[in-house]
C-alpha cells in the first residue's frame, strides 16, 4: 500500500459533504484526473448518504470510512455502518428502488456508485449493518506532475 487513511464520523447529514471532500483531498495527492476525482467524490457521497439515511435512519451512529491507494494506483474505498442493514441487497441495488419515498430519494445510489467506479461490492447483514467496497483505477500517469 502506498497510503491509507481511516475516518469515523457521526451519521449526521452535514458529514456527507465532509466525507466526500476528505476522500477527494486524500486521493488528490496521487494526481488523479479531474473526472476520476469527481467520480470518487460522487460515489462516496452516495454511499455515505445511504449509511446516514437508510442505515441509521433517525438514530445516530458512526460511519467508518477507509481509503487505501496501492502502488499501482488503485483506490480502494470502504464505507461501513452498524445500522439496520439491508434485507435484500440484490433488490436494493436495482435502479430506482427506494424505501425512502418521503425523503424523495431517487433510488439511484448504488446505480451511481456502480457506473462511476470500477467495482462495487455490497455486503449487509440485516439488523447489523452494511459494508460497501468500491474500487477505482486511476489511469493518468503519475509522471505528469508539473
Amino acid at each position: 500500500m502506498k497510503n491509507e487513511m481511516k475516518l469515523s464520523f457521526l451519521s449526521v447529514s452535514e458529514n456527507e459533504a465532509f466525507a466526500r471532500t476528505a476522500v477527494a483531498a486524500f486521493v488528490a495527492q496521487f494526481n488523479p484526473a479531474i473526472d476520476e476525482l469527481a467520480d470518487i467524490r460522487t460515489a462516496v457521497s452516495e454511499a455515505v448518504t445511504n449509511a446516514i439515511v437508510h442505515g441509521y435512519k433517525e438514530e445516530k451512529g458512526y460511519v467508518h470510512l477507509t481509503v487505501k491507494v496501492s502502488d499501482d494506483r488503485v483506490v480502494y474505498i470502504q464505507i461501513k455502518d452498524s445500522g439496520c442493514g439491508i434485507k435484500d441487497v440484490k433488490r436494493a441495488m436495482q435502479p430506482l428502488f427506494t424505501t425512502a419515498h418521503d425523503d424523495e430519494r431517487a433510488g439511484l445510489g448504488f446505480a451511481v456508485m456502480e457506473s462511476f467506479m470500477d467495482k462495487l461490492d455490497v455486503k449487509s447483514k440485516y439488523g447489523y449493518g452494511t459494508k460497501v467496497n468500491m474500487k477505482k483505477i486511476l489511469l493518468s500517469s503519475e509522471n505528469e506532475e508539473y
Binding site: T42, S45, E46, T49, D103, E104, R105, A106, A111
Partner: peptide
C-alpha cells in the same frame, strides 16, 4: 458545483 442522486430526487419531486 456538485450533484449526486439527491439532485435527481429533487427534480423528480
Amino acid at each position: 458545483t456538485f450533484m449526486d442522486s439527491s439532485g435527481v430526487g429533487l427534480i423528480m419531486g
